[in-house]
Amino acid sequence: MSPILSVTDLSVTFDVRPPGAWPWTPPLKLQAVGGLSFDIEPGETLGLVGESGSGKSTVARAIIGTVPHSGGRIVFDGKEIGAMSESARRRHRKDVQMVFQDPLAALNPRMTVGDIVAEPLVTHHPEVERAEVKRRVGEIMERVGLLPNLVNRYPHEFSGGQCQRIGIARALVMRPKLLICDEPVSALDVSVQAQVVNLLKEIQADMGLSMIFIAHDLSVVKHISTRIVVMYLGRIMEAGPAQEITRRPRHPYTQALISSVPIPDPVLEKARPRPILEGELPSPLNPPSGCVFRTRCPKAQPDCAEPGRDRMDREGGVLVNCTYHEVRDALAV
């Protein structure tokens, strides 16, 4: 089967103007994403994990086409996104939909829920009759667990979890081929998180869509993903099957991420070793030489700073971007 989405050596660069500079000084280049490659098969869920500022959302925006990529290729369904015209890109967005992080902010406060959910439909198929639009909106709202008679309500009358369901309904009304969820549950309560994740899982199985699930919390991602990509400063640290990554993390960064997930058992939680990461994410304007993670890596060696140290090792089905990695069994996630 050919992948539905194929990202090869993707890099996204932003121009940053230093404050107080002259208008004609060349802007600084901020590389938000560099050398990123992954494929998504139809019906598969890819988890994208990393801390804030690691470029996860930028990847999502590059795939959807709202942020131009400066290098590499994004091929969706056989078409290269960078080469699309403006109108072709608008049509492309019919097949790729997105669920956002802040459920309430993602809904226009002046529009009724029915109008919000219908918007993609009305945009791409203006010829569909109103009764038909209404029927399909009702159908999809029922599918995400909302009563269809709520269509005339406004977003502020709903709870966070309900708002996220509305966001999911809007994303699904076009029956897209790829759904990108940009931290869809990080703004929700833990109990609601589980509901939304289960809903997404169900819908995915139902409609057979592919999904990119972005989160900074590995424990959420491992529930829903078939494969996981761990990102740091815009680069892949580790990528492989979800089971393999969460059970036997190889990269020191993945190990640190996993150890930061609390275990709901105080005895185990106290006993386990914790490679705690110190310091902040380095500035992407001035990334470290060699391996970008070396400034915070507990296992860093002097030669990690040498250029060319950020190369991939393939081990089993797992890509590891570290020469000194070792397999370590994670206690639990």
């Binding site: 890109r89 608008r90 993602a106 918007e119 993609p120 945009t123």
Partner: peptide, 20 residues
């Protein structure tokens, strides 16, 4: 705001986004 981004990501035309 995210709802404008959502509209862009949906493929709504810029002038429609301004009006709607």
């Amino acid at each position: 705001k995210e709802f404008v981004e959502a509209a862009v990501a949906t493929g709504v035309r810029p002038f429609t986004i301004i009006l709607r």
